[in-house]
């Protein structure tokens, strides 16, 4: 029983990281109807920023996190301006392929600069408390609480502020809303900044929780986060959070009770079944095609 609790705690930690990345996917999708496949690699860049800042600037945890988020957000906006904006009216697939290209570019550029896996130094002293056989580390608590705070802030921005209203309005209709005086380009850039910033924060936290980072780490985690976004219903912010926790729980539980090599197999099979039963995700609304 304790063992299950322990695993649930691990799942909560992994799930909050997944959810943070999935939020980036889902926000960009909601506003541009485009899958930003470079997002997983921005997550990786976040971890590398964290490494660079911690090693060369010797900053403590909070400034490292903030600087990394800022750096990744700037990079995200830059990518949006340079690569995605010219393609806004192009066929959707070219935007997707561009995103794949940007992702490959980021991976290989990082690989060219740092060919070996890097080790992130310990930014926070990690203490572990034991309750019987249940052990909780301060790192786990920081990751979980920080992610929850970030998600709540995001939820507040999207549902309670003027900017959030503008975001939701643009995702509703892209032709009429600009006529109402909503600055579309600014809002889209802001969406990219927030989404990729969250991805960067996830990168930092992942780097702290699993300290060995390499340029290809973003691929698998990025695709899995994308799956979380889809499971929750893509374009839906709350769905992305739920999807993240579901996938992480399934993965950790499979790894806990079966050989860990079956983890991906079971996770993806479950995803297939879920998509066949609910083709639009858990919180997504089916969009009936009208003739």
């Amino acid at each position: 029983m304790i063992y299950i609790f322990q695993q649930l705690l691990n799942a909560l930690q992994l799930g909050s990281i997944y959810a943070l990345i999935a939020l980036g996917y889902t926000m960009v999708y909601g506003i541009l109807a485009m899958i930003n496949f470079a997002h997983g690699d921005l997550f990786m860049i976040g971890a590398f920023f964290c490494f660079l800042i911690a090693v060369y600037l010797h900053l403590s945890f909070v400034p490292t996190l903030l600087l990394s988020m800022l750096g990744v957000a700037c990079l995200g906006v830059l990518i949006e301006r340079l690569a995605y904006k010219p393609l806004r009216n192009a066929p959707r697939v070219s935007a997707i392929i561009t995103a794949l290209g940007v992702g490959l570019f980021l991976e290989n550029f990082t690989l060219a600069l740092s060919p070996y896996p890097q080790h992130i130094p310990e930014l926070i002293t990690n203490t572990t408390w034991n309750f019987g056989s249940l052990s909780i580390s301060s790192l786990q608590i920081i990751v979980i609480v920080l992610s929850l705070v970030l998600m709540l802030v995001l939820d507040f921005i999207v549902h309670r502020t003027k900017t959030g209203i503008a975001m939701r309005a643009i995702s509703w209709d892209k032709t009429i809303v600009p006529l109402m005086g909503v600055p579309v380009n600014k809002i889209i850039s802001l969406t990219f900044a927030i989404g990729t910033g969250l991805g960067g924060a996830a990168g930092v936290m992942y780097g702290l929780a699993y300290p060995v980072i390499d340029p290809y780490m973003g691929i698998m985690i990025g695709w899995k986060a994308f799956i979380c976004a889809v499971v929750g219903g893509i374009g839906n912010v709350r769905g992305a959070m739920i999807g993240g926790f579901i996938l992480a729980t399934v993965e950790i539980m499979v790894a806990a009770f079966f050989p860990s090599t079956y983890r991906d197999f079971v996770a993806f099979s479950l995803l297939l079944v879920l998509l066949i039963v609910r083709p639009y995700g858990i919180l997504g609304k089916p969009q009936p095609q009208k003739v």
């Binding site: 690569a83 010219p86 393609l87 192009a90 070219s94 935007a95 392929i97 561009t98 794949l100 290209g101 940007v102 992702g103 490959l104 570019f105 290989n108």
Partner: peptide, 9 residues
């Protein structure tokens, strides 16, 4: 990938 992105743009 850089060439691919430029081609796509």
């Amino acid at each position: 990938p850089l060439m691919l992105v430029l081609l796509m743009i």
